[in-house]
Every structure is written in C-alpha cells, then in structure tokens.
Design a protein around this nucleic acid. Structure first.
Lengths: 184, 184
DNA sequence: ATCATGTAGTATCGTAGCGATACTAAATAT
DNA sequence: ATATTTAGTATCGCTACGATACTACATGAT
C-alpha cells in the first residue's frame, strides 16, 4: 500500500493548479506567479528577494528571477536595490498584485468547496515542518517565533542582524528564521 | 486572513514537485508522468484510457495524450486498442513503470519525513470529495463503493455497463463511479 | 441506408515553466 | 590587492500545457 495521503495531496494539488489556470484566464498569471506573490505579501523586508522566493518554493534562483521579471514587466511588482548591499533586490507588490491575489489566490473552487480547513491546516503545518527540517530547507517562520527575536526597551529586535524591527514586521516571514532552542 | 491551509497545500506541493524532479534525475520522468502512472496502477479496465487520466488530474486530453505517448516511447506503458470500440485505447503499466513508481513515487523526502499521515489522509479525502462534487469532476471511486455495483450469483456485477467483474477489479478506480443514493 | 452528431484520440502550434550553465557585479575573506 | 563568495541575470534546451484542428469510430435520426 503506497501512501494514500501522498496520492491525495498530489491529485488535489493538480486539480487546483488546473483550476487556477482556467480562472486566471487572460491575465497570463500562472500558478507559480500567484505563489510568488503570496509569499511576497507575507515576507518581511529582509526576505523580499528573488533568492528567498526561490528557496520558499524549492525552485532555482535562475528560474525565479525570470518569473519575477515577468511579474515586474506586467505591473505586479516594483523592484528596488538594497541601499546597503548593491547586490540584493527588494520586491514590492503593487495594488494590481494585491487585487490579483484577492480574486485568484485561493481559486473560486476552493472558496466554494473547501469548507472548514482548520484541522487540515494543522496537519499540513506539521507535515511541512517535518519536510523542511529533513530536507534542509529554510523554515520561513515569523520573526516573533524566532530564536533571534528579542525585546530591547520594549520594542522588537533581531539579534541576528542586530537591528530593531518595526512592530508590523514581527508577524512576517523571514528567511533567517530559526526555531527557539529547546529549554534545557 | 487568506486561507492558511490553501497556502500550506500549495507550498508543500511545490516543494514535493521540485524534490521529485531532482530525484527523477536522468530518467526524464516529470511529476505529471508519475501521477499518470500512479493513477493507471489503480484504474480498472474500463478506466485505463487517456481520457480518464486527464479527467483524473484535471488536464486536457490533448496534453495527456502527448504525455502518454512519451511514456510509451520510453517503455513505461503498453497501448492496446479496445476490442469492441475501435476508438478507445487501453494503457498498461510495464515492469519498468512499476519499478519507477516504487522508487520515485512518494519521493524519498516524503518517506523519510512524512511520518503518520492517517489523519492528513482523512482530511484530504474529505476536501477532495468536496472539490470534486462542487467542480463537477468525476470522483473515480472504487467499484465496490459504487451505486451501480451489485452481486449476481455471488460475483460482482456492474449494473451500468452490465458486465460481471473480476473480483480484483472491484477495488480499482472507475471513471463511472457514482456515490450510492442516500437511503430513503 | 444516409447523414448528422457525438466521442476517443492524435498532431501541431504558441506560450511558458524549469534546471543547467555561464556570466556580471558587489561584498567579504585572506 | 587578490581570491572567493554571494545576489542576481541571460541564455539554452527541454518539456508542460491549452487551444485548435484533425481523423476515425460510434451512435442516433430520419
């Protein structure tokens, strides 16, 4: 008996991808575009880069770079150079991107039929954590659950890159995220 | 708050697809190939056709036809014409295909890290059922859970196409599957 | 019987996803 | 100062995918 959950996951994913293609219609937005935008909508200001998007989805940076260039050319992203490191590029969603996510990102079929997904979310969350840990992937957790997250004078502070954080950043995803060390 | 379960599902699927690509290596087997083979390994003898595979995954028949031709050219499938209907083609896995599934289909990462997936399987099963019903897809259930499944002289019989079935066929997937009518 | 309609499958085209490789430029280490 | 690393891009080859058009067979209507 092969793993039933795996087969179901693959089939559901395949059906949803196909559904998304159909719903995206003339926009030209492919599933991978929407996934990239979804990530960028959640990423903090140190993780809104081509590299990070690729790591998040398990795709190569060369591939992601091309997807992101397409998104910029079509008005879904703004690019900007990092001020202190001339190599890195930051990606910002446009309103057009937010509109696209709002109307396409969980495809209509999901919204109509998925129902209560709390329990499913918990199961997927656990599975993802195990896959990431075992596969050597970055976890991309929220700052406030990170080993390096501290409070200095009452305001959030990242001990890794040693900067204080805007309060709104601490709920966003960070590519440097690490689980807290288990209490001894 | 967008649907967390949906995001997790998409990301897990993306990571697993990428993982599968890497593990498939020089075989040239893409995720869609393995999904098609997985389906065909489970399909009954009335549902092992290009059309059915496409419906199962939500892809067009033209696309599937090309994928399946590739699989045949590379020795993963045998094709044969139906005896009573000259239009339909039946697809049979070769040993090479079974070997490929055995070594690649849940990718190594899944096998090593997925852990207990019983509960996840149940959740995905429920979700899939709702998506299929709402989206107008075929369910592809097992014969023995079908509305048209009967027993004649103790052996399984399909009341839809009006043939008796090999006992081994009743655990396989059928594209004509329909839920039993609710008892009145 | 003929003809229209429907269905299973294939061929072809255009677009895009994807990894691999090679490259540039900026940062960092020695 | 030089070597090495890192973020990102450009290009190539291959394949996935939908759309469209086509063939062959089956079925239904008259």
């Amino acid at each position: 008996m092969t793993d039933r959950a795996y087969e179901l996951l693959e089939r559901v994913a395949s059906l949803l991808r196909a559904e998304q293609r159909r719903e995206s219609g003339a926009t030209g937005l492919e599933p991978v575009h929407l996934q990239a935008l979804t990530y960028l909508a959640l990423a903090n200001r140190y993780s809104d880069t081509p590299q990070s998007v690729g790591e998040y989805l398990g795709l190569t940076k060369g591939n992601m770079s091309q997807r992101l260039l397409w998104l910029e050319r079509h008005g879904y992203l703004k690019r900007s150079r990092d001020e202190s490191d001339g190599r890195v590029v930051h990606l910002r969603l446009t309103d057009r991107a937010r509109d696209a996510l709002a109307s396409l990102s969980p495809p209509r079929l999901w919204r109509e039929a998925a129902g209560d997904t709390v329990r499913l979310g918990e199961e997927l969350d656990g599975l993802l954590g195990r896959l990431l840990a075992r596969g050597g992937y970055r976890a991309f957790g929220q700052c406030r659950t990170c080993r390096h997250h501290e409070r200095v004078n009452g305001s959030p502070y990242c001990a890794l890159i040693q900067v204080s954080l805007d309060p709104e950043q601490v709920d966003r995803l960070c590519r440097e995220h690490e689980e807290p060390l288990p209490a001894a």
